[in-house]
């Protein structure tokens, strides 16, 4: 019974997982990223357009990632160089991405999916599904066990620590935001490759859900991905819909849980100390 839900859970959790991982990099570096939604959307758009033009899904993935990179570059330039309000910029990028993709909406021509890898007992999934756990573990080690990651975290935690090592906060913040854009765009590419089309506003709030997963997972990759799996499972339950529970309740469960965790009723979610602070 539960096993039947695993494929859907994985398919739902993977795009969230990539975006959430992106969100972790950005927020660990101290930049609030509400633009995950827009970055995913533009990634999905890039995948479909790139694949349609070149005929290769690999090129599509690359185009999607570069679109996400450009989106992130815009966020980074605005928030880090021009010190714009991070929350407003993030929402503006979401509006921008929604607008551009509607304006230039690609022809409704079906595109191929990303290559699938088949394993005994597990089944056939897009290779991104297998890549995600590896990336999560690598990110965990990178962020918390290497000097590189500690410096990135210092950009969001303690600006003084960076300053004593005479390191530039700007550089690390740029790195975090740009990484987040590329990763969120990969999430969008996965989404588009699963449904084979691009439709207006197809991410439908998944970027915000990924953000919820970041908070739910206390800004840590391993817990973040667990949160994504939990949220994906809730969606799978909702789609299977064999119970008398209203689907809307399952639908809103991730958001309610995130609020509960953020308030500290169950466990405690603590953001990086200098998150969103413009001057440190």
């Amino acid at each position: 019974m539960i096993f039947e839900l695993i494929p859907t859970t994985l398919r739902m959790a993977t795009p969230l997982g990539f975006a959430a991982l992106g969100g972790i990099y950005s927020e660990r570096a101290g930049v609030i990223n509400l633009a995950l939604e827009g970055m995913m959307l533009i990634g999905a758009f890039g995948y479909v357009v790139g694949t349609q033009v070149s005929g290769s899904t690999w090129i599509g993935l690359l185009v999607g990632m570069s679109f996400g990179f450009l989106c992130a570059l815009l966020h980074a330039v605005a928030t880090i160089t021009f010190r714009a309000e991070q929350i407003v910029t993030g929402i503006a990028i979401n509006i921008l991405a929604l607008g551009i993709t509607e304006f230039l909406v690609p022809t409704p021509e079906q595109v191929g999916g990303l290559p699938q890898w088949k394993f005994p007992f597990i089944g056939a999934y897009s290779f991104l599904v297998y890549l995600l756990p590896i990336l999560v573990i690598v990110s965990h080690i990178l962020l918390f066990k290497t000097p590189w990651g500690l410096r990135l975290c210092a950009a969001g935690e303690s600006v003084e620590a960076l300053a004593t090592m005479s390191l530039s906060r700007t550089k690390w913040q740029y790195l975090g935001v740009l990484l987040s854009g590329v990763l969120a765009a990969v999430g969008g590419c996965f989404l588009a490759s699963e449904v084979h089309y691009f439709t207006k506003g197809m991410t439908a709030g998944r970027g915000y859900l990924a953000l919820a997963a970041v908070i739910f997972g206390n800004w840590r990759p391993l817990s973040g991905i667990s949160a994504c799996c939990l949220f994906g499972f809730a969606t799978a339950l909702e789609l299977a819909n064999r119970w008398e529970v209203p689907v809307q309740l399952l639908n809103s469960l991730p958001y309610i849980l995130t609020m509960v965790v953020l308030a500290g009723f169950v466990g405690r979610s603590r953001p990086p100390a200098s998150l969103g602070k413009i001057d440190g």
Binding site: L74, A78, T79, F82, R83, A84, E85, V88, T89, I91, A92, I93, N94, I95, L96, A97, L98, G99, I100, T101, E102, F103, L104, V105, K200, I278
Partner: peptide
């Protein structure tokens, strides 16, 4: 209509950058 939506996004980013 997306053109106007995109324009709105650019407008907001421009304004917050000026403010920053």
């Amino acid at each position: 209509r997306g053109l106007f939506l995109a324009g709105q996004g650019v407008l907001i980013i421009w304004l917050v950058c000026m403010e920053g």
